[in-house]
Write a protein that binds this DNA or RNA. Structure first.
Length: 296
DNA sequence: ATCGGATCCTGTCCGC
DNA sequence: TGCGGACAGGATCCGA
């Protein structure tokens, strides 16, 4: 579930293995994901040292020592996993157990790091993910990153900022929050969760939580606080559950969250004192979950 | 200019 | 058990 918190969790999980390691080889096992891999990506990556692992919105950023950055988006079903040790160390049968899904391993970073040899493997059954490579100095001009809104974790996001963006918009809150140009990193799950926390109905027009002069209402203040909290909580949960995940199967994928409203159709609303039942509607072709009683 | 809808692709789950 | 349809965490493109 690669929304911002999941990508951040993946970044933190990969950093100890990747940062400071040398890319012995980047192995691309097909020519494209959603888009073709950039021309000469293998050659550009091979032999480079990884200086840092970063993130912008839902994009993982792999900074190399020649001033370039590999951009990786996980799409809907992308994940990374780490395998340690030389390939030949795996007995055939055991290796098979480790990689039930091997046909969807599309890119393999063969690494040599302070902790030895390892592989970081990108797996993506639906292939909605993609990679690009850019010069760091021009990263904000990259078509994928250009125009992205502020991170919900930083100071740039404020009720005043969002009020300006939402002023005059008839678009539903749900769609406005999914628009990465307004806020970067929210996806279907955390938009539902944030609106639930703020007691706001997803179908409401975005402009209804802005005053005539473009100032934030109390509801907008509450929404922004809810977004911050939801994201912070999810990152915290990811960080704590990741450890166990690595220990059990050596993979860095997604972990099951317990959501308050997402995927809870027909179940009781979890707002204290609320007697409502979670409803599911479709907005812009995607499921929205909300409580018709406490979200107004 | 702003919308919603269709689209890319595979896997899983549920009802018959 | 097999089969068909609905559905899935995203983002872009196109047409109304």
């Amino acid at each position: 579930m690669p929304e911002l918190p999941e990508v951040e969790t993946v970044r933190r999980g990969l950093a100890p293995t990747m940062e400071g390691a040398r890319i012995v080889r980047l192995e691309l096992r097909r020519k494209d994901l959603r888009f073709p891999f950039p021309e000469g990506l293998e050659a550009r990556a091979t032999g480079r040292n990884i200086v840092a692992l970063g993130r912008r919105a839902k994009y993982l950023l792999i900074d190399l020592d020649d001033g370039t950055t590999i951009i990786s988006h996980l799409g809907m079903s992308g994940s990374f996993r780490i395998e340690a040790g030389p390939v030949s160390d795996w007995p055939g049968e055991f290796h098979h157990l480790q990689s039930k899904d091997e046909k969807h391993d599309h890119a393999i970073f063969h690494l040599e790091g302070p902790h030895g040899i390892s592989r970081v493997i990108y797996n993506d059954p639906r292939r909605f993910g993609f990679m690009d490579v850019v010069h760091r100095s021009e990263i904000d001009l990259n078509p994928f990153l250009f125009g992205l809104g502020p991170e919900p974790t930083g100071n740039e996001l404020s009720a005043a900022y969002l009020a300006e963006r939402f002023m005059g918009k008839t678009q539903p809150l749900k769609s406005a929050l999914l628009d990465q140009k307004n806020i970067a990193g929210l996806g279907n799950i955390y938009v539902c969760e944030a609106l639930w926390r703020a007691h706001l109905r997803p179908a409401r027009a975005a402009a209804t939580i802005v005053t005539k002069t473009g100032k934030p209402t109390k509801q907008m203040e509450l929404l922004v606080a809810s977004i911050r909290d939801v994201i912070a909580d999810a990152i915290k949960a990811g960080g704590s559950s990741l450890r166990d995940h690595i220990q059990t199967d050596g993979s860095l994928g997604y972990f099951q969250h317990s959501f308050s409203v997402y995927d809870r159709e027909s179940l009781p609303c979890r707002t204290p004192g609320c007697s409502g039942t979670v409803a599911r509607i479709v907005q812009a072709g995607r499921s929205t979950f909300y409580c018709p009683v406490c979200q107004k």
